[in-house]
């Protein structure tokens, strides 16, 4: 009887106790997830309406972001994307709270690690987002300036500026995430230095005649200039 009591009944009673202790936490967690889903849906609808009212999709289009997402296979407008994002962030936050409510030490340790790293991910995403906007803006400005200066390499100049700014943003984002910190900086420096050196050599060797012609024209004033007064 004693053996039966110790081997079967006591563990079962202990399990029963644990279940009794765990069940309220579990139900609380389920409730929290449920609240998260409902609140997420409500916030999604609110954010969607606000973004529509602010005409965010049009502004987004102006920065060429719609095109970028389209290339990635995303066809939905920004207002839909952002409202969905708000919904899932809400659900995610409530899920995390629900997991903590379970009161399981191993899950708590995992969450702690995650929360310490999470801000870096957010900052890296923001760096990439604004880096992309800035690279498009700078690339377009460089392209227009190069075309107006009459440079036949204007397309290359515009693309180079755009890519350089975006690479810089990617480097900063990766550094923020702590991925190969030194390696990335060295790689970027080598790449950037390499591009400058390649351009210098290309101009020095390939562009000797062009440079000569240009300097000759400048010195001798051979080029026929416009005298139009535009205003």
């Amino acid at each position: 009887m004693n053996i039966f009591q110790r081997v079967i009944v006591e563990p079962l009673e202990s399990l029963y106790e644990k279940i009794l202790h765990f069940l309220p936490n579990f139900l609380t967690s389920l409730l929290l997830v449920g609240i998260g889903v409902i609140l997420g849906a409500v916030l999604k609808a609110v954010v969607f309406r606000v973004l529509k009212a602010l005409n965010v999709d049009k502004h987004f289009e102006r920065f060429g972001m719609e095109k970028m997402l389209g290339k990635g296979g995303i066809k939905e407008p920004l207002s839909v994307l952002l409202s969905k994002l708000v919904k899932w962030i809400t659900v995610f936050i409530f899920t995390i709270i629900a997991l903590r409510a379970l009161d399981i030490p191993s899950i708590e340790r995992l969450l702690e690690g995650f929360f310490l790293y999470f801000p870096n991910v957010i900052v890296a995403i923001l760096i990439l987002f604004f880096g992309y906007l800035l690279s498009n803006f700078m690339g377009r400005a460089a392209l227009i300036a190069a075309v107006n200066a009459g440079s036949v390499l204007s397309g290359v100049i515009g693309r180079s500026v755009r890519v350089s700014v975006f690479i810089l943003a990617v480097t900063m984002a990766l550094e923020q995430l702590g991925i190969g910190r030194n390696t990335i900086i060295i790689t970027f420096a080598i790449l950037f230095g390499g591009v400058v050196l390649a351009l210098a050599i290309a101009f020095g060797l390939g562009g000797r005649d062009i440079a000569k012609e240009y300097i000759e024209k400048k010195v001798k004033g051979e080029e026929k200039k416009d005298e139009i007064s535009h205003l």
């Binding site: 075309v147 009459g150 026929k224």
Partner: peptide, 21 residues
């Protein structure tokens, strides 16, 4: 004095490079 050739070249360069804008 007007450099017509250069002006037309500038227009063509614009058409080639700025059309996406």
């Amino acid at each position: 004095q007007v450099n017509l050739t250069r002006m037309i070249e500038r227009f063509r360069l614009g058409v080639k490079e700025l059309m996406d804008i």
